[in-house]
Amino acid sequence: MSESITKPNPYFKEYLPQEYKDIVEKEAFKKNKSFLDLGVVKELLEEHPLCAGCNLALSLKLILVALPNPEDTIIVGSTGCSSLALAQVGIHNIHSLFGNQNAVATGLKRALSIRFPDKVKDVVVMAGDGATADIGLDMTLHSWFRKEKITTIMFDNEIYANTGGQESGMTPCGRVVNMAPKGKKFSKINMPEIAKTSGCDYVAAVSVAKPKSVFSSVRKAILVAREIGPTYVQIFTPCPTNLKIKSSEAIIVAEEKVKQGEYPISEYISPQAEEYLKNLGELSQ
């Protein structure tokens, strides 16, 4: 987009809400921000309606500040807690149905390539574990098989949080949750491995407790998706409400589980992606 599009008509300016004026004046669309800019620049996420201490909300803030090119980025979401927050984001985003996010993103990305052949338009899917690995798994995988140039980010809270804490495919084996009254009977789906096998050129599993790694994996994923192929980032965002822990301790859980080896952290970069990122140099940091 051209920056001038966001500039309000001077005659309308006084009627616009303060948040809108902030978007224009406080560099919400500034390129290549650092996560250290959080709280200094205008954030793209407006006051969100998620629970206090929500790790998904925190990781969303980190993702948004990591977008290499927010003014030309489109987000495709899905049903779930994340859909409530995504509607509050100051860039174009879609919620259409539960589970179809990678299919919508496929059509969207191809359409944008037709309309803007000489422009970079980053398409980033952000959805929960239920949307990505259960109800929408076929569409997640097929977008990867087809090598669609989109980034898929999963908020992995290991549960259907928005509907009241039911078992998802990403719930660890043995955990007792709704709809798994005797504990989950099979292992957590190994999505990073599946992503790698399915053709993703960049795959990362990170914890929200490590902002720097969230930031850098998201940035790398989006850059690789521009030129090389599909990418996948899985962010561990344990849900304080469903885990029944204090809001202030949610992020500690995200850190502890990783330390205890209960949540595996990983990164895979395909040789082509590696080469590409090397050539980009600092931009990809």
């Binding site: 489109i74 495709v76 879609i94 259409s96 149905l97 179809n100 299919a103 919508v104 993103a105 496929t106 059509g107 969207l108 990305k109 191809r110 359409a111 944008l112 390539s113 037709i114 309309r115 076929d138 569409m139 097929h142 087809r146």
Partner: peptide, 27 residues
């Protein structure tokens, strides 16, 4: 026709054309 592919099932195909229509092309 500028672009064409086989989708993975009808639910996905209808979502794919929706995404494309949202982005402003004729499908």
């Amino acid at each position: 026709v500028k672009d064409y592919f086989r989708g993975e099932n009808e639910f996905a195909v209808m979502s794919e054309v929706a995404g494309a229509a949202m982005a402003g092309v004729r499908v």
